[in-house]
Amino acid sequence: MSDLPAPLAEIVDDFTALSESDRATLLIEFADELPALPAHLEPAAMEPVPECQSPIFLSVDASDPTAVRLFFSAPREAPTTRGFAAILHQGLDGQPAGVIAAVPADFGYDLGLASVVSPLRLRGLAGMLARIKAAIARAG
Rank of each mutant, 00 (worst) to 15 (best):
A78K: 12
A86Y: 01
Y109T: 07
D32Q: 09
L70T: 01
D14R: 12
P35S: 01
G140C: 14
V116R: 12
V60H: 09
F57V: 00
G98V: 07
S59H: 15
A137Y: 14
F107A: 06
I11G: 00
A36N: 02
D14M: 12
A17K: 10
I87S: 06
E33F: 09
D93F: 11
P43Y: 09
S21P: 10
G94W: 07
G98S: 05
A137V: 15
G83D: 02
P5A: 05
R69I: 03
L26P: 02
P43N: 11
L111I: 08
L125D: 09
L8N: 04
V60N: 11
M128F: 06
I11T: 05
V68W: 07
L37R: 00
V103A: 09
A9G: 07
T25S: 08
D61P: 11
R131S: 08
E29Y: 02
L27I: 10
D3K: 07
D110P: 06
Q95M: 13
R131C: 03
G108T: 07
T25Q: 07
F84K: 04
D13H: 09
S2Q: 15
L18A: 00
R82C: 07
F15G: 05
I56G: 01
I132Y: 15
L111A: 07
F71R: 10
G127L: 01
A139K: 07
R131T: 06
D13K: 04
I136C: 05
I87L: 03
S63G: 10
A39P: 10
S115A: 15
S54V: 08
Y109H: 11
D14P: 06
A67M: 14
S73F: 13
F107E: 05
A17D: 09
V12F: 10
P65W: 03
L122T: 02
A139N: 11
E33L: 12
G98T: 12
L88D: 12
I136S: 05
Q95C: 12
Q53W: 00
M1L: 10
L122V: 07
L129Y: 14
S59C: 13
F15H: 12
T25L: 08
G108Y: 08
D64R: 01
I56T: 11
M1N: 03
S73W: 14
P43I: 10
R123C: 00
T66E: 14
F30T: 08
P75G: 15
S2R: 13
P48L: 03
R121N: 01
I136P: 07
A67Q: 15
A139R: 14
G83S: 01
F71C: 03
E20N: 04
H40S: 11
S54Q: 08
I56S: 08
A9V: 05
A67L: 15
P50L: 01
L26I: 10
S59E: 14
S59K: 09
E33V: 06
R82S: 06
L122F: 05
A114K: 15
D64P: 02
G98F: 13
P104R: 06
A134E: 12
A45W: 08
T66N: 11
P79Q: 00
G140R: 09
P50G: 00
S19W: 13
E20C: 00
L58F: 05
E51R: 02
P96N: 02
